[in-house]
Design a binder for these strands. Sequence first.
DNA 1: TCTGGGGTCCTAGGACCC
DNA 2: TCTGGGGTCCTAGGACCC
Length: 395
Amino acid sequence: MSSAPVFFHVDLDAFFASVEQMDNPGYKGQPVIVGAAPGHRGVVSACSYEARKFGVHSAMPISEAFRRCPQGIYLPVRMSRYAEISGVVMGILGRFSPDVRPISIDEASLDMTGTGLLFGPPWQTAENLKSEVLERAGVPLSVGIAPNRFLAKMASDFKKPNGLYEVLPGQEESFVEAVGLPKLWGLGKKTMERLHAICLDTLPRLRQMSEDALKSLMGEAAGKFLYNAIRGRDIGMYSDTAKSHSISHETTFPEDTADWEIISLSLLDLSHQVMYRLFAEDGKSRTVSIKYRYSDFSTFSCQNTLSHFVLSAEELYKTGLDLIKAKWNPRIPLRLIGIGFDKVQSGEGSQKELFPTAYERKGLVEKAVFNMQKKAGDATPVKASLLGHPGKRKM
DNA sequence: TCTGGGGTCCTAGGACCC
DNA sequence: TCTGGGGTCCTAGGACCC
């Protein structure tokens, strides 16, 4: 007899803020806001539920958060600390399911199918999981239980914070109704606006549409997604097939700038950060992409696929520099610059040339430095601008 | 309101090939 | 003459998520 499918979705509540409250008990019960410093450019990364009472939420500009909650405790992001706690939580999850898929630093999807004999019924298991995480990692989490990953994800959100909710088989459609169309995962503001414009922004009306009709209205993928999502069916989220991915870093300048020295030096630093991450995961890529944002917030990107894998931060930087030189209109100051690799593959079988190119030799040196730093327990790249690089360049 | 940084996936058009 | 069909790769932009 095969067991009915059961999935858990776990989500750490206001994670960054919860960690800060655990590390500083004086912050408990206080409006904690983690993100950019007030007075600087940036947004709220996470905030405690006490802060949400003031109307503060994540992704809100920090200036607006400060206006709404001047008495808040404003803290910088301590990503390595959060990663540490996340690791403890993921370790606990691994003892509850052989199939744990981390979605982000504070979320994971677990296949719990067939674990009933070992742990008991799902609800009981979820309660045990919640108390073990609180006890051993010190942070609260919400759990959603459902017959598929998509519903489990939304169920984890349904009773937050410190929530637990179970969607039983047969309740798929009624749960989607309880969640409501605007809060359906994967359906954002733009799509809602579009649906509204064609009078299809209610569940009953949408459910009258055939899959083909939705596809022709919304496009192949979006139509298929919508047709299944509004029925609470799995939409194939969090697939485990390893694909190529991307690695990128970007930075917003403290002030908009048209200063070529600032822009090129930033690009150089970012290039080193990106290349070191590629080294760290032993990946390879031929596609360099850059992103730039003008002072009016209009944002553009472009990319260049080389005939060979990029071998060094120098080569990455040079390729990105050529792209930005060709695209940027220097009469308009830039707000942001970013660079990255697209279509990163696993690096096994990296070619070794008999006669290494200059870039390849540079890459070997960079890699050696990276490995030394890794051994010394410091895997962060030396700031390129501190390596005595000439940064200044003529356009 | 004055808007971070890191991602994923999809689309549409063009180049090129058979 | 006036025009195939399918496939792959590349690119830029957009929607969405955490």
